[in-house]
Design a protein around this nucleic acid. Sequence first.
DNA 1: GTAATCACG
DNA 2: ACGTACGTGATTACA
Length: 414
Amino acid sequence: MGEANTQKLFDEIELPLLRVLAAMELEGINLDKAFLNSLSDDLNNDIQTLEKRIYEAAGEEFNIASPKQLGIILFEKMKLVDKPKKTKTGQYSTAEDVLSYLAKDHQIIRDVLDYRGLAKLKSTYVDALPLQVEESTNRVHTDYMQTVAATGRLSSNNPNLQNIPIRTERGRQVRKAFVPRDENYTLLAADYSQIELRIIAALSQEETMIEAFKNGEDIHASTASRVFNVPLTEVSREQRSNAKTVNFGIIYGVSAFGLSNQTDLSRGEAKELIDTYYETYPKLRAYISKQVDFARDNGYVQTVLGRRRYLKDINSRNAVVRGAAERNAVNAPIQGSAADIIKIAMINIYDKLQASGYKSKMLLQVHDELVFDIYKPELDAMKTLIKTEMENAYTLNVPLDVDLDIGDNWLEAH
DNA sequence: GTAATCACG
DNA sequence: ACGTACGTGATTACA
């Protein structure tokens, strides 16, 4: 782990990065407003259809967007469940994970979930983004915050371009609206593959996981093969999916309860899976304990570049509060080291683009991804430059791997 | 202003 | 026995 040298971190990373971010913010990105307007009309139609069906099933009109009103309709009037889950303020919870359980038995629940999804897309993205196009440049200029996230990540606001939809088919259409400057340019997206798992493998010196990365294996399939004790070629979808959930859970400090909530596994099965996981990757467990001990002794943890996160609650007598701080002690060096590494890459790429007078521009950063407007004649040079700088930004005893894609919009480039 | 919900990595 | 996965920002409802 890095020297604790906050001044050095400021001088060599954060201050140089400031210029890079300023250039990205000033550059902005081109947005296809007409395309979003047509998406908005489509959404409007579907939202109205769902509204009618929901009112019909409920036997009355109400505000579907009010969790309070919706809860009363679903759980008092329609009595869809015996013991409705409540939020901490005593309202009925209508959160997605609660409604999902009921979806298979009730059309109205499926309609509410669809309604919510479409309404979110429309209000937060499809209708809001065109309003944020800056008149003088005809482009969208996000604002990157350097001192908000406790781990050292950036955040993005006005508008937030780090949470543009991708997980649902309908949502990912929004990405088609992010387009190159003009016909002489193409978008290029470059993202780190599994950077946080590579970091925890490297920091823990867990040889089995390191070897899997060195061999270019699909890490979730590889984990599944080991913990479920089946040949790599016979790993089922479900086994890979559960292994993937544990791999991510480890980074967050998962409990058996949390894992069983995120999978189809019972608590007992989840506990067994976690135990087997740590037998497969014993140094991961040792690393996690070491991080928590360090935090207890020193009151902070740190990233590869010595970025500190102070954890005032690490010795709290309240087990819940202490537990949260312990998970922070594990997660912050992982998430924060990934942030350190992409920041180094951004500075180095920006400097090379400047020094050689390239017309291509870095536009966006989304935690493990960089998006560029590439001047087409520079495409081959840019692919090499970007991949090389990102993969070699920081040397770990695990290789870093970057995937590149190009396209006429942000969806195609992904 | 706070709570609830949900979009992303 | 207890409560329970990390980090953000935007929108809407409502007191």
